[in-house]
């Protein structure tokens, strides 16, 4: 790990979106979600792994994801999360907002 990876605190609330996005591709357990986010960002995004769990609780309480006990690929008991219909709607909403926001920032920075 040569370059210091970026910690995901520049955009508060984006963790929820990342989790929802990850789960919209496939059902995963907590560790799997972290790995997936890191791998798919080429290790650019380094989330504070512990923060994942309060976020998962919040999402579940909001009814956006559903956790159930299952078995991981290497045969260990884990809570596997899947996205709900409400979660997909929420993901759409958040994606829209995020896109708007980044576009706005990019415009200001004159990068467009």
């Amino acid at each position: 790990m040569g370059r210091k990876a970026q910690k995901n605190d520049s955009l508060p609330g984006s963790l929820d979106m990342l989790i929802l996005r990850t789960l919209s591709r496939r059902d995963l357990h907590g560790y799997g979600i972290v790995q997936f986010i890191q791998q798919s960002s080429d290790n650019e995004l380094l989330i504070e792994e512990g923060s994942l769990y309060p976020a998962l609780q919040r999402l579940e309480l909001n009814g956006w994801i559903d956790g159930a006990w299952g078995v991981t690929s290497n045969n260990r008991r884990a809570r596997i999360y899947k996205i709900t219909a409400a979660g997909r709607k929420q993901l759409a909403v958040e994606t829209r907002q995020y896109t708007k926001l980044t576009l706005a920032i990019a415009r200001v920075m004159g990068m467009e």
Binding site: H29, G30, G50, Y53, R77, A78
Partner: peptide, 8 residues
């Protein structure tokens, strides 16, 4: 939650 974190 505790179990999940330990697994992680």
């Amino acid at each position: 939650l505790r179990e999940e974190m330990e697994l992680h």
